[in-house]
Amino acid sequence: MKKRFGKTDILVLAIVFAVLSGIWIFTSFIIKEEGADVVITIDGEFYKQVSLREDQEIKISGDETAANILKIQDGKADMVEADCPDKLCVHQKSISKNGETIVCLPNKVVVEVKSGEDAEYDSVAR
């Protein structure tokens, strides 16, 4: 019978797992503030900033070929349509808390929730 786990393995795996869970728990606790705006960027460039308080549908289209539709309802932003093949961003849960993002990699679209103040700062800095 060959040995499947050595002492070192159990130790390393346990430590790594503890650290990763710690990071996970820590970050999910610190990111829980409700955001005010969503900032949309395409390919790193600022595209649009909209308030989470108004219900609306936004068409995100950098050039004529690629498009996503973002729906804002009850203070939450959700990607409802995308013309990319994998649709990962559409499957993703809606976002409302500071720092949360929806990313559509094929179209290079990033939607991020921000609190009012730093959102404006960021859009200028880009």
């Binding site: 820590f26 390919d43 790193g44 949360e100 290079k108 990033v110």
Partner: peptide, 23 residues
């Protein structure tokens, strides 16, 4: 790589979950 492609370091937000998933 994804952070480079979308030129937005904020997607590092996913890192904790992805680390657990990778584990």
């Amino acid at each position: 790589m994804a952070a480079f492609v979308v030129e937005n370091a904020n997607i590092m937000y996913y890192l904790p979950v992805l680390l657990i998933a990778g584990f």
